[in-house]
Nucleic acid binder design. Structure first.
Length: 103
DNA sequence: CTAATGACATTTG
DNA sequence: ACAAATGCCATTA
């Protein structure tokens, strides 16, 4: 699984206190498979190693892993994100353009 | 191999 | 601004 490994690799590369987007990661790996990236992270076999919560939607929205999960409130990740200096409001990143990490 | 899926993105109504 | 439709791409059944 080369593709997934790449995804995880870039995710790990995201510095603490910053975030990135599926699109940017895709560009970084010379691909536009935003979708596939989401797939890779959704499964995230490298759960503890890969900070998947630092990857958000292109418009700064958290994405499906924050509060988008029906029934369950997994906002803990967002909370963790906030602890890392990432300000999140209404499932959206504040100062998104400032803290977004580009490769 | 074909079809379905989804933590996305963009455009259109 | 919000909702729906379309396109996209790797993974999985």
């Amino acid at each position: 699984m080369k593709f997934n490994e790449k995804v995880y690799f870039y995710c790990k590369k995201i510095p603490r206190g910053k975030v990135s987007t599926y699109k940017e990661i895709g560009k970084a790996m010379n691909s536009k498979a935003y979708r596939a990236i989401g797939q890779a992270l959704r499964k995230n076999p490298y759960a503890p190693i890969v900070p998947c919560h630092r990857v958000v939607a292109s418009d700064g929205k958290i994405g499906g892993f924050g509060g988008a999960v029906k029934g369950k409130k997994i906002k803990k990740k967002i909370l963790l994100l906030k602890k890392e200096r990432v300000d999140v409001k209404n499932n959206k990143i504040m100062n998104f353009e400032k803290i977004i990490y580009r490769f």
